[in-house]
């Protein structure tokens, strides 16, 4: 598999767009399950209640990879996630998440030869304000 060719063809363009309506309870549950103790993340009654900073990482689009991409999502595993927090996510928000492949590269690790696909999801709210950018490193064994 020619990784440079793959990157040239598939990286950099939006292949998925999804809408999410934000409700209070899932925000609080996410925080509580992660051990958060601050009311602004755990208590919907708090005047500053909002999602925990890494919350957007929990979302998936309709597709993990563009249609026709020559790699099986089911055969990959999660190598890591980076969340760039830009603004609070609050109950009542409507988020639009747009996905593109940000990078593709290869390396070897304890699992052997691996292709890394960096899937970037940009979340904006109903005011067209970017609230989070999430990079997800999908690792596919070669």
């Amino acid at each position: 598999m020619d990784i440079a060719e793959l990157k040239k063809k598939w990286a950099g363009w939006t292949f998925d767009e999804v809408r999410f309506e934000i409700e209070a309870e899932p925000l609080a549950e996410f925080s509580l399950a992660c051990g958060e103790t601050l009311p602004r993340y755990t208590d919907p009654q708090d005047p500053n209640f909002q999602a925990a900073p890494s919350f957007a990482a929990r979302f998936h689009g309709d597709r993990a990879l563009p249609e026709g991409f020559p790699s099986d999502r089911e055969a990959s595993f999660d190598g890591g996630k980076a969340v760039d927090w830009k603004a609070p996510i609050r109950p009542g928000d409507t988020l639009i998440a747009r996905s593109h492949i940000h990078d593709i590269f290869e390396k070897t690790g304890r699992s052997g030869g691996m292709m890394f696909i960096v899937h970037r999801m940009e979340f904006s709210n109903q005011n067209d304000e970017i609230v989070s950018i999430v990079d997800w490193k999908m690792i596919r064994k070669l």
Partner: peptide, 15 residues
């Protein structure tokens, strides 16, 4: 889940 581990690390910062 990896994102739970990530959330746990965020909660460490807040504590």
């Amino acid at each position: 889940p990896g994102i739970m581990s990530q959330g746990i690390l965020v909660s460490l910062i807040h504590r």
